[in-house]
Simulated assay, not measured.
Amino acid sequence: MLRRSHVESWVKQMIAAGLAPGTVHTRVQNVRAVLRGAVRDRVIATDPSGGVTLPRRRRREHAMSIPTPPQVGALLPAADDRFATYIAICASGGLRLGEAAALQVGDVDFLRRRVVISRQVQRGPGGTVELRAPKHGSERRIVVPDRLLTLLAGHVEHHLSSGDPERWLFPTPTGTPPHQNTVGHQWRKATSAAGLTGLRLHDLRHFLASGLIASGCDVVTVQRALGHASATTTLNPYGHLWPDAEDRTRAATDGLMSAALDDPADPLRTGWR
């Protein structure tokens, strides 16, 4: 019989193994859903996971690692020539690992300066590559800067023998799109060569999001750029990066006071003494 002490022991083992608090929470919640279903079906009397203490999760703003522009700039020359373009499109377009891996030549619209995201790569059984729809139905078109288009054009010219629209943009030596192990290996090589530690490829999405927010983009614009299912999904990790009500009020009143103090009315003309 499964007891609460068994669940507590399991949680302690996961913590001792170095799993992140968020991972522990997710695993326990998955098991808890099954146990609660068993309670409803009267297979067991009570949920033995109830009341089990879980590790404290860090607030998102403290746990998030946002690469700086100089760090991203250092990664590009440090990476393998083919992989540098992969990094650039993840940083400029906020693509997920699997979305960038699944890009084909025809997905790049050089004339309209945008890239179509319509699929993602997932690792299947035995290391096979599977193609699926993007996460949460986040098919989208992303706008790309001219310098990225230049990199993409050079990548196609130098590394792909033909411009076949259905050819993978970042093929492996066997002609398949790369999966997470291949990308992870290249990422570790690039960060090591650049002398950077603690950065994940996924942090490039934070890089784009923080840059858009700093430039004054609203939540819907950031949501669409990242392919989030809703504005709430965007606000959960990034809400703290937007100016709050106090910041906006302070900026507004500062402007009013500056206008009043920098151009005072003539006391003789207004009659004030």
Rank of each mutant, 00 (worst) to 15 (best):
L2F: 02
L2E: 02
R3V: 03
V11L: 08
V11T: 07
K12P: 02
K12T: 13
K12E: 15
M14Q: 12
A16D: 14
N30A: 15
A33H: 10
R36G: 08
V39N: 02
I44E: 04
A45M: 09
T46E: 14
D47S: 03
G51H: 06
R57S: 09
R57M: 14
E61R: 13
H62S: 11
M64G: 01
P67Q: 03
V72Y: 01
V72P: 02
G73E: 11
G73S: 11
A74L: 08
L75N: 01
F83A: 05
F83S: 01
I89D: 00
C90H: 03
G94T: 03
G94N: 03
R96I: 00
G106Q: 11
D109P: 12
L111D: 14
L111P: 04
S118Q: 14
V121R: 01
T128Y: 03
T128S: 15
A133D: 13
H136Q: 05
S138L: 01
E139L: 02
R141F: 09
L149K: 02
G154A: 05
G163S: 14
D164A: 13
P165K: 10
W168E: 10
W168I: 04
L169K: 00
F170Q: 03
P171W: 00
T172L: 06
P173N: 06
T174G: 08
G175K: 05
H179E: 15
V183S: 07
H185M: 10
Q186N: 12
Q186H: 14
R188Q: 15
A194W: 11
T197A: 13
G198H: 07
H202N: 08
D203W: 05
L204P: 07
L204S: 07
F207D: 04
F207T: 05
A209P: 09
A209M: 06
S210F: 00
S210I: 04
L212V: 04
I213D: 07
A214W: 01
S215K: 12
S230F: 06
T232C: 04
L235G: 03
L235R: 04
P237K: 00
G239P: 00
L241T: 09
W242I: 12
A245W: 12
A245C: 08
E246P: 00
D247N: 10
T249K: 08
R250F: 11
A251H: 06
A252Q: 11
G255M: 08
S258V: 00
D262Q: 11
P267T: 07
P267C: 08
L268A: 15
G271W: 09
W272T: 15
W272F: 09
W272S: 13
W272E: 15
